[in-house]
Amino acid sequence: MNISRRQMLVLLPAAAVAWKFVLAETPEQSPNYKMTEHWWGMLIDISKCIGCGNCVRACRTENDVPEGFYRTWVERYHVSDENMTEPEVISPAGGENGFPVAAEDSKKYFFVPKMCNHCADSPCTQVCPVGATFVAPDGVVLVDPKYCLGCAYCVQACPYGCRYIHPKKEVADKCTLCYHRITQGLTTACCEVCPTGARQLVDLKDPKDPIHEFLKTHAVQVLKPQMATGAKAFYNGLDGSVR
C-alpha cells in the first residue's frame, strides 16, 4: 500500500483522535461514594445457613457469571466425631440447586457458604505481574479486565479457590463484593436474597455497624488464619474441620 504525504498528513491526526478515544476512561460512577470511608467485609453465620442456594443463583444473575463457574458457592460438610480432619464435603453445582436430603445419622452436618474473602494482604494481588488486580482503598479485591492478561497466576495463588478464568473474556474473574451495588448504597446480591440472614455485608470503618459488637461477643474465625491473608469474610460458628 502506498500512502502519499498528503494522505499521511490526514491519517496521523485521525489516528491521534482515535487513540485519545481509546484512552478515554469511564468517570467515577457514584460521585457521593467515598472509597476512603469504607472497609468492606462479610459476616457469614454458619448456624443460620440452610443450603437453599439462593446466594449462588442471585450471584449468577447479578454478575452474569458464566455457567459452570462460581463467584460464591455452598459446601455441605459431614463430619464424624472420630475423624475430624477428613470431613466428607459435597457441593453439587456449587449448591445452586440446593442439596440432596440428608438423613439423620451419627455424624455432624452443616453448610458453609464460600466466596472471596477480600483479604487485606491478599496473595492473589501480590502475584499479578501487570497490576491488573488490586485491593481497592475500600478493601475490596478487584480485577481490571482491561489490564488482565489471563495468565492465571492469581487463580493459583488464591488459597480459597475463589478465582477462575472467564471462558469468554479470557481474563481472571471473581467476586467484586457487588462493587456496583455497594457503591450505590445497596447490599450485595447474595446478602439481599439470603432468607435467613446467614450473610451480612459489613463495613469495618463504619462505627455504627453492628459488626463491631458482634465480633466482640462471638467466637468468630476466618478461613486459613495461619496464612495471614487478612481475610475479611468472618465466619461465626465455624467448625474446626472446615478447610
Binding site: 467515577e28 460512577q29 447479578e62 481490571d144 445497596l186
Partner: peptide, 25 residues
C-alpha cells in the same frame, strides 16, 4: 493510562468501570 498509579500499582479508573455494571436486584 492517566489513572495508573493514582491509588497504587493499578488503573484507578478500573473501579469506576467495575462500578458501572448494571444492577439486577
Amino acid at each position: 493510562p492517566k489513572s495508573f498509579g493514582q491509588y497504587g500499582h493499578y488503573r484507578g479508573a478500573a473501579m469506576g468501570e467495575i462500578a458501572a455494571h448494571p444492577a439486577k436486584f
